[in-house]
């Protein structure tokens, strides 16, 4: 998780955990303050695509 960056500005992300199983984050978000953009974590998978590429 510490090597992940915002795909738009390469800046740091703030992790917000909504649910966890043992050490694994199941749902949550990674937030970039600079771009005001959220990257969702769903079912254990971070979606690090910029919004226009997510579809």
């Amino acid at each position: 998780m510490e090597i992940l960056a915002c795909p738009l500005c390469k800046g740091d992300l703030v992790l917000n955990v909504q649910s966890k199983e043992e050490d694994e984050i199941i749902t949550g978000t990674l937030y970039c303050e600079k771009c005001n953009e959220y990257y969702p974590i769903d079912d254990g998978i971070p979606n690090m695509l910029p919004p226009q590429l997510r579809k």
């Binding site: 960056a5 998978i45 690090m48």
Partner: peptide, 18 residues
């Protein structure tokens, strides 16, 4: 992921710090 591989959805290296 279902095949047991830790995977993130990203475009090439764009989600990684250098």
């Amino acid at each position: 992921c279902d095949n047991g591989v830790r995977t993130i959805r990203a475009d090439m290296f764009s989600a990684f710090k250098p």
